[in-house]
């Protein structure tokens, strides 16, 4: 009979454990935000439904596809580094940064459109949630891009290898968290009614 002993690698997620504690804290805040939106909507369903119809679903789709593609690029960057393909890894990270940039541009255009139409945080409860929730996420995308840029620069300078790439895993899981949050935010704010 052979006993299976779980190794450290089997028990703990990739990357630095501290980033996972940070991610759980971030996810808790977003969970409260999502629940607050859903229960605030109960108070005035007609208002939420009316103003939700003013949002640009095409832009939201493009942003969703950009973030999912960005996450995929990070997965491929890590896979390339595990195979010691440093140049390919850096290229995948740059592609992920490109997807993040696309997200920021599209979202900024959305904000510009709403601000030009006179929409403010104080306009109504729906826009208060829409602007604060999406802008909070927007700031996380910027943070994720700063982390990915630092990881890409270190990878370019030979700071990671097939044996040691914990920093790249750590940056990667943060970026995936940003994607994960948007995957809930998109249907909740733009589609569900």
């Amino acid at each position: 009979m052979t006993a299976t002993i779980a190794t450290h690698q089997d028990r703990y997620p990739p990357g630095d454990l501290a980033i996972w504690i940070f991610i759980l804290a971030e996810l808790a805040v977003f969970a409260i935000f999502f629940a607050a939106y859903a229960f605030a909507r109960m108070g005035d369903v007609a208002l939420f439904d009316h103003y939700q119809a003013t949002l640009d679903k095409d832009a939201a789709l493009l942003n969703s596809l950009a973030l999912i593609t960005g996450s995929y690029c990070v997965v491929r960057a890590l896979a390339a580094m595990r195979e010691d393909h440093r140049a390919a890894s850096v290229r995948w990270l740059i592609a992920a940064l490109g997807m993040g940039t696309l997200f920021l541009v599209v979202k900024s255009l959305e904000y510009a459109h709403h601000l030009a139409a006179g929409v403010r945080l104080s306009t109504n409860t729906f826009y208060m949630f829409y602007l604060s929730l999406t802008f909070f996420h927007f700031m996380h995308v910027i943070m994720g891009m700063v982390i990915l840029a630092a990881v890409a620069w270190k990878a370019h300078r030979g700071g990671y290898s097939a044996r040691e790439h914990t920093g790249m895993e750590t940056g990667g899981v943060y970026w995936h968290m940003v994607d994960l949050v948007w995957l809930i935010l998109f249907p909740l704010v733009y589609v569900m009614r």
């Binding site: 779980a6 089997d10 703990y12 997620p13 990739p14 996450s71 997965v75 895993e169 899981v173």
Partner: peptide
Amino acid sequence: IGDYFMGLRGLH
């Protein structure tokens, strides 16, 4: 995303 991209699949 959690399972395949964040690498939680296969953990104990």
